[in-house]
Simulated scan of single mutants.
Amino acid sequence: MDDLLQAHSVQFEDDVILFLAGELDIATAPLVHQAAVAALASAPQRVYLDLTSLTFCDTTGLHALKRLNRTVRTAGAVLRIVGMRPRLRRTLARLQSFSLASPYAALSDSILTCHLAR
């Protein structure tokens, strides 16, 4: 399973950047929740989810992203999704139950926008 999806996070000031690389499906979805819980341990204001290296996402993966969004909001943080491929962006936009909080094309755009707004 670990070879199908890699997840790691990096602390950046009051924020956490969570990177996902590989395939997000029924076999790997639990790893997303585990990574989120670990990333939220530092009580960040924002969680940047970088999907630049995500190569596949099925319906179970979509549910994992929805759960991640709820988990981050419950922790009092904001989820910012970056690096989505066009197909995934269109799919998430069609899911009315999933609210995307400012999806950015690149991680640098998202961090810069948030830090300039301070």
Rank of each mutant, 00 (worst) to 15 (best):
H8Y: 11
L5R: 03
T71I: 02
A27T: 11
D109K: 08
G61F: 02
R67Y: 05
E23F: 09
P86S: 02
Q45M: 04
L95C: 12
R94T: 05
A39F: 13
L68A: 05
D2P: 08
L95R: 04
V72R: 06
R73Q: 07
P30M: 11
P30G: 05
F98Q: 05
S99A: 14
S97F: 15
A117T: 14
L92P: 01
V16L: 06
I26H: 05
A7I: 13
A93I: 09
A29L: 05
I81H: 00
R85D: 14
A21H: 06
A38W: 00
S53V: 00
S102P: 04
A101G: 12
E23M: 08
T91K: 02
A101Q: 13
G22T: 09
I81Q: 03
V78A: 11
V47Q: 05
T74C: 00
D50L: 05
S108F: 03
L68K: 07
K66S: 11
P103Q: 09
L20E: 09
R89I: 07
R80M: 11
Q96V: 14
R85Q: 15
Q11Y: 05
R67I: 00
L4V: 01
D50R: 06
I26W: 00
L18V: 14
A35D: 10
R85P: 02
L51C: 15
P86L: 02
T52Q: 10
Q34T: 15
R67E: 06
V47N: 10
A27R: 10
A77G: 11
V78D: 12
L65W: 07
S9L: 05
S97P: 14
L68Q: 07
A64K: 02
T60A: 10
S42W: 12
L62V: 13
V32K: 01
D58C: 01
D58M: 03
P103S: 09
E13N: 14
L79D: 08
L54E: 01
L20C: 12
A41K: 02
A75N: 05
T71L: 14
R46H: 15
V37Q: 04
Q34E: 14
M1C: 06
A117P: 08
R67S: 09
L62N: 02
A35Y: 10
F98L: 15
D109A: 13
Q96C: 06
F19E: 11
